[in-house]
């Protein structure tokens, strides 16, 4: 009996060691990745890459940095009214049946591989509408990819507004619009913001849908909405690592490093928003 128990304890310990080892293993892989990107990235960062543009396979990254920022900013401007608006409609106005249809369509959007989005816009806008590679086509692609993340976070956030809070406000005689703007909206804002930031993180790291919409440019992006291709950082990582030149490898590492920093920052802000949100929820409960 005692030996039986001992054996069970030993087995238990064995499996837990394996479990802990898998966590350590995962963190080691992460370390290898970070170490790789950071060591090579920092070595490749020179001050002048922020101010010079790409010349062929060398030069700087100013055009790609500005392009990535511009593409993502415009994508946010495009996705915010649509994604959050749709979530507000679904949680506040929609009849049951339509609510299901909108949510289903968003689920479908989650399943669309990003390259399909890029391809769709390439044929529809770049070729057929004759926009050429352009800022708007690229940003639209990013906006479509961000949409389900932004929508779902907003839907979740607005659905989670405590019912009693809303009912209390209505009972006190507040008009629905006032209730919504002063009670529901502030409550849902952090969650929505978190979703938006996750979307921004994803948009920052996208490559496939931009290749055929934003194109690529060696020059600083102009603000021309169409007919002017835009450079972006992920393109540099993907293409320049395949070049047999040392300078281009350096640029690829630098671009990867900058991307990681950008994603760290959005991730950090998103996490802070979650914590802020959680603490608010707790203070109400």
């Amino acid at each position: 009996m005692v030996s039986h128990v001992k054996r069970n304890v030993a087995i238990s310990r064995f499996w837990w060691v394996l479990c802990i080892a898998s966590l350590v293993g995962a963190l080691l892989v992460l370390l290898s990745l970070f170490g790789f990107v950071f060591v090579r990235g920092i070595a490749a960062i020179r001050p002048d890459i922020f101010v010079t543009v790409t010349q062929g396979i060398a030069g700087g990254l100013a055009n790609a940095i500005a392009g990535t920022m511009l593409l993502v900013t415009l994508a946010v401007v495009l996705v915010v009214p649509v994604g959050i608006g749709a979530a507000i409609w679904v949680t506040q106005f929609a009849p049951d049946r339509l609510r299901i249809v909108v949510r289903l369509s968003i689920d479908v959007l989650f399943g669309v591989p990003s390259i399909v989005v890029g391809y769709f816009l390439y044929v529809a806008l770049v070729e057929t509408a004759g926009w050429g590679f352009s800022l708007v086509a690229g940003s639209l692609a990013l906006a479509i990819i961000m949409l389900p993340y932004v929508y779902r976070a907003a839907d979740l956030a607005f659905s989670a507004v405590p019912r009693d809070l809303v009912e209390a406000s209505v009972a006190l005689g507040a008009r629905p619009l006032t209730t919504f703007l002063r009670v529901a909206f502030p409550w849902a804002l952090p969650g929505t913001l978190t979703g938006l930031l996750i979307g921004v993180g994803i948009a920052l790291g996208e490559t496939a849908p931009l290749i055929y919409t934003a194109g690529w440019s060696n020059y600083m992006p102009t603000l021309a909405p169409t007919h002017s291709p835009v450079g972006y950082l992920t393109y540099v990582v993907w293409t320049f690592i395949n070049e047999p030149f040392k300078e281009s490898h350096q640029l690829a590492y630098a671009a990867a490093f900058l991307l990681m920093i950008g994603i760290f920052v959005t991730n950090f802000v998103a996490r802070a928003a979650v914590e802020y949100w959680a603490s608010r929820t707790r203070s109400h409960a």
């Binding site: 401007v77 102009t222 021309a224 909405p225």
Partner: peptide, 25 residues
């Protein structure tokens, strides 16, 4: 702010398109 920014983006866009050097790809 968003509306103003949007308007600004497109206004600047057409301005830039008119004044920029000819792009050849």
């Amino acid at each position: 702010l968003t509306a103003v920014a949007l308007a600004a983006v497109f206004a600047l866009g057409s301005l830039a398109a008119a004044r920029a050097a000819t792009p050849i790809l």
